[in-house]
Amino acid sequence: MNKIVSIKEFQKTEKGTFTIEMSRFIEASPTTIWQIFSNKATLAEFMECEIEGDLEIGAAIKFIWREFEGDKDKCSGINGGHIVNMIPGTLLSFTWGDENPARGLPWGSTLVEFKIEAERNGSRVTIIHYDLPSEEEAHNHTGGWTMFLEKNTVSWTN
């Protein structure tokens, strides 16, 4: 049986931003994983959204999320920035933010890396999301996440 290994970290860096890191062992070669990352259609299938822009270093990229409300298909948000690096079989990185900064992260303000390493009979894929603002910074910039936190605070009487 194929064992799934997941490592998750939420670390504060010296500059006061946060990093999320998580990985999985996948029973597929780095070439196969790269095939998914380097093709717009398969990358869109993986991200479960529409992708706008070319997969080239420096190109702008948009991840467009759609949801069905009843029978109506509507855009529920757009994330993205630009492609920072593409190393075949090894790395895809791009900046990431929200088109609507009131939702939290300014456009292209954080960095996402998809790293591929050969491991046993497959690959280890690691997703690292850098430069995430602290709750306090997010509040200073946008009021976004703190607003969500307050909005979703639940109180009840025992």
Partner: peptide, 16 residues
Amino acid sequence: WDRKLDRLKEQAEKLE
């Protein structure tokens, strides 16, 4: 991202 890794695993293993 956890959900995306699950998705990638499924997609990549199928393709392999």
